Simulated assay, not measured.
Amino acid sequence: MDPSGLTTDKDHQLDQERIGDIFRSGQFSDITVICEDAKWKLHKVILVSRCPWFKRELVEKDPEGEINEIIIASDKDIVGWIIKWIYFKCKLHPANSVEAYLRHSNRGTAIDGTIYNTGTIAYPRLYRAAWRFELSGLMLKIELGMKAYLRQKAIQWQRAFHDTDPLLEPQFLPDNEIDTIQDAIVQTYKYEVDELKVIWVDFAEATMFWPVASGFFKPIFDDVPAYADEVLSYMTDRRYIPAVLKAPHHCKKCHQCPFMHPARTCYYVRVWHDDEGEIVGECNFCTTYRPSLFFEPDE
């Protein structure tokens, strides 16, 4: 703590290390959480202070503090992720992305890296669990993390489409990427995660709907008809319907190809058929218009 009495980042880091030590050792535990065949020796004061669901179960329903064991009917992996979030993430700086947290382990305290190895597949399950345990901070980080991931993926897919003749090379996207996206969308609709459904529809728009028209999304639409309905409904308000698999040669305003732009941060934000039937588009440098997915958090 600095002389002003304010807590410093170093103080915070030390606190987190102490919490990590007692979590791993089980020292001073006063509650056992059980899910399937997994058990965790935990601490009421941490659970109650950081999670509204645990506060209700351990304080409001048990004001005398007699409960020393709680059984949760769920998936043990999900419960494990939630517990580790409560202990190690809920107080960390909000700039830390959920992807980095899921991908990397910090002295064994991060959520198991296997969740991230499946790409976006785990997001719907984790979001649903965060909703159940009333962890609004985790819900927000999942939304922001998923948007950031899909924002970059949409630009990559735009570039792949632009650099390929889809009529001659219809497989312009890797199968594993399509499979990962498909599994994640299936999970989103299976668990009825409305907040993430919107993001998936925005993702289709951010790709300029090119994978939709090319047939890449057909297996996804077959598996999730509700998603197909939402995407196709979204397209009806756009002047561009990609019946012809062709990208514009350049931006209508600056006459440069976004993917040849020296800034390397240029991409299409809008593509449509003009009155003569030509395919035209505008890049992010030439218009203030943005598809929903391309709005940065601070915009």
Rank of each mutant, 00 (worst) to 15 (best):
L173M: 14
Y240C: 09
L135V: 01
K153D: 10
F285T: 04
S4L: 06
P291S: 03
T8F: 05
F161E: 04
T8I: 09
I86L: 06
F203H: 09
T118Q: 14
D179K: 14
P248R: 01
E17Q: 09
P262A: 07
V186S: 08
L102C: 14
F88H: 15
F28A: 03
W200G: 03
I111K: 00
F216C: 10
K218G: 04
V186E: 15
Q152G: 13
L144S: 07
E177D: 11
R107F: 12
T180W: 00
D179F: 07
I185Y: 03
I178L: 15
H273T: 05
W81G: 13
R107Y: 10
K218E: 15
V269W: 05
K153L: 15
L196H: 10
G145I: 06
R18T: 02
I71N: 09
C90Y: 07
F133N: 11
Y267S: 03
G277E: 08
H104P: 00
Q182E: 09
I241S: 06
T287C: 01
W157Q: 03
M235H: 02
P94S: 14
E278P: 00
Y189I: 04
I78L: 15
C286W: 05
P225N: 01
K246D: 09
Y234T: 03
T8C: 08
K141T: 00
V59A: 03
A38I: 01
D37N: 15
T164I: 02
G26Y: 03
E57P: 00
D298R: 10
D275M: 04
A243E: 10
K76V: 04
H255N: 12
S105L: 00
R290F: 02
F209A: 01
Y227R: 04
V79D: 12
E278N: 11
